[in-house]
Write a protein that binds this DNA or RNA. Structure first.
Length: 803
RNA sequence: GCCGGUGUGAUGGAAUUGGCAGACGUGACGGACUCAAAAUCCGUUGGUAGCGAUACCGUGCCGGUUCGAGUCCGGCCACCGGCACCA
């Protein structure tokens, strides 16, 4: 009988769908397991071969957990709001809703063809009003707690999308999506106060039950960018003060000038006193014209203007020092002003060199003629009054207490993380459920009016002045104030794509609840997510945003665990056959449909897991797929050599136990590639005996089932085993039976292999040394020499050291 | 510049965390089956020297620790990803 994978796969996918085989039950007394993969953006291109890498991996985990008796939730949905859909809709004059529906249908069909065990009863779609009702609800809660606010601020403006972008969406100074130039523009924007959670977002990564892979943890921490230092208050010759932030209070004696950002408000206050105000204003204009890109590109060349007429006073040296305006100081970080210590900061060094400002060495150990000396670990304080002679760390502490005693400053923690720009001037997103009333200001719409539906419109083109297309819809815009009943106007901006994905894993717990985002019982039972896998590209933004929302929901009592994900892993990319990133323009795209058609879903799944280390990127190889197909063919052909037998035969018993152990452990540690390799090795062992018995066959089918679910179910049925594989117990192993009775030990003389010995596993140290010495090659090598040492490594080797 | 990652046969990758480097797969070569090809099955396959048993070399480079290093330590080099004037 032939292995007709097309027919077999269709058959079992039909059975699973009809019988709801993979629905999670609401029996909250059972032990639960929540496996989660990032839900895709249903793009027009259809599924990429990269998607199934993550989905198959956790499908294997989910299927194994089911076999182990867990109530498993493995859901799937669609992160469907977003620009590509809107742009496609605009170009082709099709409503984004229809575009989305078509793309979702295609994706769903593709996912089903892979035999992924998703619980389709809990499918969600972020563009569904019954879903975004709750996205809007969360926004209102944030607003009520003062964590959503509107602010005039310079934003990144994409000249082509005519849209505000988050800092994160600007890549190398251009728009992440369309590649057009991004400029700065001042606009009134909705902001979310993620900075309020900065410290907790760092601290809770180290909670005892939180198990993120290290590189994900590190990148979260780096992104939040915590630094400790001090705020120092400088008096000015004008009689007011200028406060700076520094991480190096120890170097205060070396501060020979100050710099403020071009946007600093003090410039306006000082305008009358500043003698060269024209030059300063000219510089401000120049700086504001620069895009972020230019500001960074020209980083090497420091520019600036000295403020004439106002000087700062160094609080410890009491000397007057000049104040400059320069765009190397950013208004958005710290106080927008710095004390400059050219001898010990690279940027200040460059600036001081360019402007001929004197520098004072206050930490000895470097050569400041050559470059700034920034090392904190080895230096000793010099020229620093009461700090002289201390180490840098001691000096930091002492200076901070001096500042606090003299009311000249205090210790301070800062973060790189900024508040989250939450408005987009686009159509295809969740409407922000806020109205602006002339009397009452910004008011949230009553929760009873949720969802605030996205109105149907025909023209999705944004306006040139940067308003969302919704702004043209007068029926939508004009409304009454829920507070005073007077005239009011709706917010016309929509939420960014990150909104819907910031809480979707909660909705899966109770996907059809009309009264709450999910019931308390469901959330208590399913959370936290036990294992969340996704791409490395989401380890900063999506992960941070969703952790922020989750913590907020925790604070207001909606969820009862402080962190959403107990374990987070990331898979590597699948590259094109030439080792480059897969893309249409490179012409190296592999279509998963073709692979399924030609080799079958089981082979495709197996290959994607066998391709290499799960966490690393790996190039696609069409010829390697054949190896996985051959493996399944050979498994299929085992039917021809099946014999009776209730127990494993002695000749394969150890091999069976070892493989079960290896596969069980490897699935938990993301080593799917070696799990498959060990099953291949087991198959080789079995076929070498010329037969397989029923006990061995059953175990093999169960073990292979999570990887290749269709073929294993089919064979299980054909061979007349009872029930289905998916209803069996996961295979177990006996540690004692994993050990070979007879093993091969290497014999070394002075660390060089001389021979190999076949010995009993429990051989004594003395016996094995005697055996080794009896070997002619070993005897030759040690003849006439003195034995210095004899080393026996249990079950591994013998090393005889001679002189 | 900073942070993270990687470097092993022709090739994708293994190596129980300091103990026989190259598991498993691909490719290649030889053989069986076949009129033939495909498929399948069996064997060989890190390099150099030798008919050979065997010897020497071998995990990016240089050095160190150790009876023993792909693995640990110090110093480099190359590539990939992210961040980038964050004081």
């Amino acid at each position: 009988m032939n292995y007709n994978f097309t027919e077999i796969e269709k058959k079992w996918q039909g059975i699973w769908e009809k019988e709801n085989t993979f629905s999670a039950t609401n029996d909250y007394t059972k032990p639960k397991y929540y496996a989660l993969v990032e839900f895709p953006y249903p793009s027009g291109q259809g599924l990429h071969v990269g998607h199934p890498r993550s989905y198959t991996a956790l499908d294997i985990v989910a299927r194994k957990k089911r076999l182990e008796g867990y109530n498993v939730l493995y859901p799937m949905g669609w992160d469907a709001f977003g620009l590509p859909t809107e742009n496609f809709a605009m170009k082709n004059h099709i409503h984004p809703e229809i575009v989305t529906a078509n793309n979702v249908a295609r994706f769903k069909e593709q996912l089903k063809s892979l035999g992924l065990s998703f619980d389709w009863n809990r499918e969600i779609n972020t563009t569904d009003p019954s879903y975004y009702k709750w996205t809007q609800w969360i926004f209102i809660q944030l607003f009520k707690k003062g964590l959503a606010y509107k602010s005039e601020m310079p934003v990144n403006w994409c000249t082509s999308c005519k849209c505000v972008l988050a800092n994160e969406e600007v890549v190398n100074g251009v728009c992440e999506r369309c590649g057009s130039e991004v400029v700065r523009k001042v606009k009134s924007q909705w902001m979310l106060k993620i900075t309020e959670y900065a410290q907790r977002l760092i601290d809770d990564l180290d909670l005892p039950d939180i198990n993120y892979i290290d590189r994900v943890k590190t990148s979260q921490k780096n992104w939040i960018g915590r630094s400790t230092g001090a705020e120092v208050v400088f008096d000015t010759t004008k009689g007011d003060t200028l406060t700076v932030y520094t991480t190096r209070p120890d170097t205060l004696f070396g501060a020979t000038y100050m710099v403020i950002s071009p946007e600093h408000p003090l410039i306006k206050e000082w305008a009358d006193t500043i003698e060269n105000i024209k030059d300063i204003e000219e510089y401000q204009v120049q700086a504001s014209k620069k895009s972020d890109f230019e500001r960074t590109e020209l980083a090497k060349e420091k520019t600036g203007v000295e403020i004439k007429g106002v000087r700062g006073i160094n609080p410890v040296t009491e000397k007057e020092i000049p104040i400059f305006v320069s765009d190397y100081v950013l208004m958005g970080y710290g106080t927008g002003a710095i004390m400059a210590v050219p001898a010990h900061d690279t940027r200040d060094y460059d600036f001081a060199k360019a402007f001929n400002i004197p520098m004072v060495e206050v930490v000895a150990g470097g050569n400041i003629e050559e470059e700034a000396f920034t090392d904190c670990a080895t230096g000793v304080m010099v020229n620093s009054g009461f700090l002289t002679g201390l180490t840098v760390e001691e000096a930091k502490a002492k200076m901070i207490s001096w500042l606090e005693e003299n009311k000249k400053g205090h210790a301070k923690v800062n973060f790189k993380l900024r508040d989250w720009v939450f408005s987009r001037q686009r159509y295809w997103g969740e409407p922000i459920p806020i109205v602006k009333c002339e009397k009452c200001g910004y008011v949230a719409i009553p929760e009873s009016e949720l969802p605030l539906r996205l109105p149907d419109i025909e023209d999705f083109e944004p306006t040139d002045d940067g308003q969302s297309p919704l702004a043209r819809m007068e029926q939508f815009v004009n409304t009454t104030c829920p507070c005073c009943g007077g005239k009011a106007q709706r917010e016309t901006d929509t939420m960014p794509q990150w909104a819907g994905s910031s809480w979707y894993f909660l909705r899966y717990c109770d996907a059809h609840n009309e009264n709450e985002l999910a019931s308390k019982e469901a959330l208590n039972y399913w959370l936290p997510v036990d294992w969340y896998n996704g791409g490395m590209e989401h380890t900063t933004l999506h992960l941070l945003y969703s952790r922020f929302w989750h913590k907020f929901l925790y604070d207001i009592g909606v969820v009862s665990c402080p962190e959403p994900y107990a374990k987070r892993t990331s898979h590597g990319m699948i590259l094109g056959e030439n080792g480059e990133k897969m893309s249409k323009s490179r012409g190296n795209v592999v279509n998963p449909d073709d692979i399924v058609r030609e080799y079958g879903a089981d082979t495709m799944r197996l290959y994607e897991m066998f391709i290499g280390d799960f966490e690393k990127s790996a190039p696609w190889s069409t010829s390697s797929i054949k190896g996985c197909k051959r493996f399944l063919d050979r498994v299929w052909n085992l039917q021809d050599i099946l014999v009776d037998g209730e127990d494993y035969r002695p000749e394969v018993e150890t091999s069976m136990h070892k493989t079960i152990k290896k596969v069980s452990e490897d699935i938990e540690t993301l080593k799917f590639n070696t799990a498959i390799a060990s099953m291949m090795a087991l198959l080789n062992d079995i076929t070498n005996t010329g037969a397989i018995n029923k006990a061995e066959m059953k175990a093999l089918l169960i073990m292979l089932n999570p990887f290749a679910p269709h073929i294993t179910e089919e064979m299980y049925e054909i061979l007349g085993f009872e029930g289905k594989v998916s209803e069996q117990q996961w295979v177990t192993y006996d540690e004692n039976k994993c050990i070979d009775k007879s093993i091969e030990m290497a014999v070394q003389v002075n660390g060089k292999i001389k021979t190999k010995l076949q010995v009993a596993v429990d051989i004594s140290k003395e016996d094995v040394i005697a055996l080794a010495k009896a070997d002619s090659k070993v005897a030759n090598a040690i003849e006439g020499k003195t034995i210095v040492k004899e080393i026996v490594v249990h079950k591994k080797l013998v090393n005889i050291v001679v002189k």
